[in-house]
């Protein structure tokens, strides 16, 4: 340490501060946790098997019902218009 330059003493002190013991271990442990978290998200359970079949069937039935209602309504309007025209 230089006796006459507190600025240089301070700079050298800050430049030579050691890294905490076990820092690399700590980083690798945190990294392992993060990898496991992202793997858990990537492999999160999605609808499958019987649940998926039921959900798909329900969606298809709903879509068919909506389409049928729409077709019936269109047919009724067309028939009414045809009747009025006669």
């Amino acid at each position: 340490m230089s006796e006459n330059d507190p600025f240089e003493d301070w700079r050298l002190d800050r430049a030579n501060q050691p890294v905490p013991d076990g820092f690399a271990d700590r980083v690798m442990a945190a990294l392992g946790d993060r990898v496991r978290e992202s793997e858990a998200v990537a492999h999160a359970p999605v609808a499958s098997g019987p649940g998926r079949v039921v959900a798909t069937s329900a969606f298809a039935a709903g879509a068919f019902a909506a389409l049928a209602c729409h077709a019936t309504l269109v047919a009724a309007i067309w028939l009414a218009w045809a009747g009025t025209a006669q």
Binding site: V19, A24, R26, L31
Partner: peptide, 30 residues
């Protein structure tokens, strides 16, 4: 680790732990 920890110590606000920021930097890099 030396440069990263010293840089975090010099730049991080006092209210945060610079070693935590250095650790997060490595994890983000990975």
């Amino acid at each position: 680790e030396g440069p990263i920890v010293r840089f975090a110590r010099g730049l991080a606000p006092r209210s945060s732990a610079p070693e935590d920021i250095a650790q997060e930097a490595f994890v983000s890099a990975f």
